[in-house]
Amino acid sequence: MKCGFCGHEFDEEEQGARTCGGCPMSGRCGKVKCPRCGYEMAKPSGFFKWLKRRRDKENGR
Rank of each mutant, 00 (worst) to 15 (best):
residue 30 G to L: 10
residue 32 V to L: 14
residue 55 R to N: 11
residue 46 G to A: 11
residue 52 K to T: 13
residue 50 W to N: 02
residue 41 M to P: 01
residue 34 C to A: 07
residue 41 M to Y: 08
residue 25 M to F: 00
residue 50 W to F: 07
residue 24 P to R: 14
residue 36 R to H: 07
residue 33 K to I: 00
residue 41 M to V: 02
residue 35 P to Q: 05
residue 59 N to K: 11
residue 45 S to I: 04
residue 28 R to L: 07
residue 29 C to H: 00
residue 28 R to Q: 11
residue 47 F to A: 14
residue 38 G to E: 13
residue 37 C to I: 14
residue 31 K to H: 08
residue 22 G to C: 09
residue 59 N to E: 10
residue 48 F to A: 10
residue 40 E to N: 02
residue 35 P to L: 03
residue 22 G to W: 06
residue 59 N to G: 05
residue 46 G to C: 03
residue 36 R to A: 08
residue 58 E to C: 01
residue 39 Y to C: 12
residue 48 F to D: 14
residue 27 G to I: 00
residue 39 Y to F: 15
residue 22 G to S: 12
residue 21 G to T: 14
residue 33 K to C: 01
residue 49 K to N: 07
residue 31 K to A: 03
residue 29 C to E: 00
residue 24 P to F: 11
residue 41 M to K: 09
residue 28 R to T: 12
residue 28 R to S: 12
residue 25 M to H: 02
residue 55 R to P: 03
residue 38 G to V: 08
residue 48 F to K: 13
residue 58 E to Y: 01
residue 48 F to R: 14
residue 39 Y to Q: 14
residue 41 M to W: 09
residue 32 V to H: 07
residue 49 K to P: 02
residue 40 E to H: 03
residue 26 S to V: 04
residue 57 K to M: 07
residue 24 P to M: 11
residue 39 Y to L: 13
residue 44 P to V: 09
residue 32 V to K: 11
residue 25 M to L: 07
residue 25 M to Y: 00
residue 51 L to I: 11
residue 27 G to H: 05
residue 30 G to V: 12
residue 54 R to E: 08
residue 55 R to T: 10
residue 29 C to S: 03
residue 47 F to E: 15
residue 48 F to L: 15
residue 52 K to N: 14
residue 36 R to S: 09
residue 34 C to E: 07
residue 57 K to I: 04
residue 31 K to G: 00
residue 54 R to T: 09
residue 45 S to C: 06
residue 23 C to W: 03
residue 39 Y to T: 14
residue 59 N to I: 04
residue 58 E to I: 01
residue 57 K to H: 07
residue 32 V to P: 05
residue 24 P to N: 11
residue 42 A to G: 06
residue 51 L to W: 15
residue 28 R to D: 02
residue 59 N to P: 01
residue 22 G to Q: 10
residue 44 P to N: 09
residue 27 G to A: 13
residue 24 P to I: 10
residue 44 P to G: 06
residue 57 K to N: 08
residue 59 N to T: 06
residue 28 R to N: 10
residue 43 K to A: 01
residue 50 W to V: 03
residue 46 G to K: 12
residue 43 K to H: 04
residue 38 G to S: 12
residue 52 K to A: 15
residue 49 K to E: 08
residue 55 R to I: 12
residue 30 G to E: 12
residue 21 G to F: 08
residue 27 G to K: 03
residue 21 G to V: 13
residue 52 K to D: 15
residue 54 R to G: 05
residue 36 R to V: 07
residue 28 R to V: 01
residue 34 C to S: 08
residue 50 W to S: 03
